[in-house]
Amino acid sequence: MNLTLKIWRQAGPRHRGELKTYKVSDISPDMSFLEMLDVLNEQLNAAGEEPVAFDSDCREGICGMCGLMISGHAHGPEKTTTCQLHMRSFSDGDVITVEPWRADAFPVIKDLVVDRGSFDRIIQAGGYVSVNTGAAPDAHATPVPKANADRAFVAAECIGCGACVAACPNASAMLFMGAKVTHLSELPQGQPERMARVVSMVEQHDEEGFGGCTNVGACSQACPKGIPQDVISTLNKDLRSALRA
């Protein structure tokens, strides 16, 4: 198939960016979206134009490194990561707009690459269990009811890609943060720090410049791992308890 691409080009963090139009032809429906961009980059390189910078690493939907706004949808039209989106989801002649994540807390580094260091800092604020290596009791010392373990797992599937932020009209990171809070709140190991954790993470979230949650639900819709919106309810409930205490 033949496609027209409108791609955001921006030389650096302080440069002005713009959408540039490129054509690609003979694209196979079995290619992934990123392999289609590889084809474009080979084409640009041959023509002496600098290739488009974009992030990707595992290309199997688990590392969370890739993430593009494709014709206005985070990760494109399917519920998956950009690397797992295949060209069979598009048709011959399509015009596709490709942009980076847009959020104050994710500044553009170059072209389609953004800085998501704010997510690391939210985790640093409390997204862990304080247990030093060697200090752990036997793994069977504390049974965990299967229902709690399963919900913890669903929340822990978050890959930290940032699609939730990109999709949210407020650029809020509540789904990302709610996923971590829920993962640890469901487990006995997460209880001792449960209240301090949620307060500290929310403070960091706000400091980073993420917006507030207004229950739009676009985050959960865009999430390639299907993190449910109710993790935000868990976060709010924990936060309420913590602030009352």
Binding site: V129, G134, A135, A136, P137, V144, K146, A149, A152, L187
Partner: peptide
């Protein structure tokens, strides 16, 4: 064996049986 203990203590959600054990 120590690895499993450490990871469980960190909150790694390993698969569990209905009795709550790994």
């Amino acid at each position: 064996a120590n690895i499993i203990d450490q990871c469980v203590a960190q909150g790694v959600p390993f698969a569990r049986e209905y009795g709550g054990l790994l």
